[in-house]
Design a binder for these strands. Structure first.
Lengths: 201, 201, 201, 201
DNA sequence: AATGAATGAGACTTCATTCAT
DNA sequence: CATGAATGAAGTCTCATTCAT
């Protein structure tokens, strides 16, 4: 960001621009996301937008930071001391679904931005590191038994599977379907609870 | 397509354009995908591209059709008569990883196009229907026990979880990691084999 | 128009674009009329042109509206209370010649646009209606005697004959020739003054 | 033309291209007139078109020559020895209306081509000279009395007035209206028959 | 600080014309 | 000769960004 907002009015302006940008990016994707449209939706002039964000990339990164902070907050909330594994998984899946429901589509657009926007600085790695660290902590706590795979790999499997199911459910408008949630919880729960021997086929 | 290629020369041209387009779309995403760049990469003039594809969207759809045909072929190959469940899951996951390795990133770009490109006709629904039908057939065959959820929901969970894990692994350059494959196979296998009771937490 | 010019600067810009467009359309016809050329002739960037006119057609319509307003003003000026018929015809023809002299060729290009430019909204019908209404009023006042034809048909004959003579005279660079004007006045005057019996041949 | 057609087949091909071009130019105007479209409509390949017409301009000139020859034939037919003036005018107007009805719009498009196509060689002047010579002969024969204006000017007035009325009637779809024809005949007849004194106003 | 008019590189697309088959 | 695939200059239009007010 070009300039740290000092006054309350400035902070509100920045808020409005990030919020408007998140909405447009989630609703219309990269194709509909133009700086002029964001400025108009935020109720400010294009000149003001460039006062706070030196270019389009900065605006995107502002939107991403905001969204990822929200996600991390959700993640941490799901891990309360001493919860049994199934309660954790249920809370986690439920909260992730809720997080995706605020700006449907936004999450995936932001994670895939590398595919859509070359020059993006720090391609979400710092967020992702922290994000995965949360998963890893949970895995270390709840994992039933050691397999060949380390905790990190198991974290990836879980986070990415949840991601995939929720993302595609959102695409299909099935984010509210209780069966989807239940089956996802069941799959993750089975995976975490099972011993290393795996299913016998 | 605007014109069906008749001569061998024009068939090769269309091939080259679709191949170049797939590579650019997979490597550089929507942002790098311009008709001029595709024409240049295919070694033809921009005019030739527009002789066969009336507009950019048609080219994208051509690329998608080609890719989806490839995917369906892979899907069907994994289901051989009488295989035990774990062999099926291993073949499926292995083949999907292989399919994603040809043009890394292409698959997700094409499935998410709705988010990035407004006017795409027939948003992959006809492909997806057939794609899911393959999964559903496998689920009907291999599913251990009835739960509340129907076969369709279980198909979604499996296909989308595999999708999510592979897509994100590709993003991280971990598509070749054997642990990722093994754990993914283990998770899907457990989910398919487990009875309806679910894990106890 | 996409955007109403608010500041004085932008009003001047729109003026310049319409004026430059009229000149180019009159001088070079449809073939020479490109948005880039108009922008350059107006001394603005192509982006500014598209800020006020959403597409090429809108610019053409802007030019037409301006020209037609000018024409109607001329038409109305020619009809003063109580003038004898020959004074009216002389004033009318003289003013029409003057109107055509500002941007020679523009008038015909604009009336014939349907032949040259497909998508033009409202093909000059609303202008033409008002234009012909002026002629009809004059015919009702000055017509010597009833024939089988109604006032509307007579209006068409007069307006289109004047149109044809002036247009072709302009084409030949004879717009200033006094004989052309005198003979045209004589023909229209004879036609209006003659009784319904017609010439005997 | 690049090459004089020698064989019957070639002559038929050239015929087809000119006919198709006239139709497209009349129906769709300059905007719809492309060499590829003409070739397709004529049922030949674009390569064949360029075998006989070295460029687009040549094709246009071919179409024009054909059309003007038709017009001249009509013109000459109207002037039979010893006809009274009104019979001549009626025949002339009737034939001109008929000529315009074959390819409505074509005549005006061709006469105004200077406005639409810069580089047209010999902008219809040689045709026009002959065309006007026909009118002038008729004027010399039928004109009632000398005025200040010479025969040439009177020819212009008549030909251009007829042109304007017919052209605009065609534009309005009123080419078949008998009132239009009758009034046009009456106006021209009055003008030719009247003495030099003009109407008194 | 805020505004919004202005800029112009670059994207998509057309179509007159050429040339290998 | 005929075909039609290929070419590329040129035109329309968008949108990130700047800067005078």
């Amino acid at each position: 960001m070009r300039k740290e907002p000092r006054q309350a009015r400035s902070r509100a302006t920045v808020e409005a621009m990030i919020e408007a940008g998140a909405r447009i990016l989630g609703d219309e994707g990269w194709a509909g996301f133009t700086t002029n449209k964001v400025a108009e939706a935020a109720g400010v002039s294009i000149g003001s937008l460039y006062q706070y964000f030196p270019d389009k990339l900065s605006l995107i990164e502002g939107i991403r930071r905001r969204h990822l902070d929200d996600c991390l907050a959700v993640m941490r909330r799901s891990q309360k001391e001493g919860r049994p594994v199934m309660q954790f998984v249920e809370a986690l899946v439920g909260d992730m679904i809720a997080a995706h429901s605020i700006h449907p589509g936004l999450h995936e657009v932001l994670l895939d931005e590398a595919l859509s926007f070359d020059g993006l600085r720090d391609p979400h790695s710092s967020f992702e590191a922290e994000y995965l660290a949360c998963y890893q902590a949970a895995v270390a706590t709840y994992r039933a038994q050691e397999t060949n795979a380390n905790d990190y790999t198991v974290s990836l499997i879980i986070s990415d599977a949840i991601d995939g199911v929720i993302h595609n459910a959102a695409r299909r408008g099935m984010l509210e379907d209780p069966d989807v949630k239940n089956e996802l919880v069941r799959m993750i729960g089975l995976y975490l609870s099972a011993g290393g021997e795996g299913p016998t086929g």
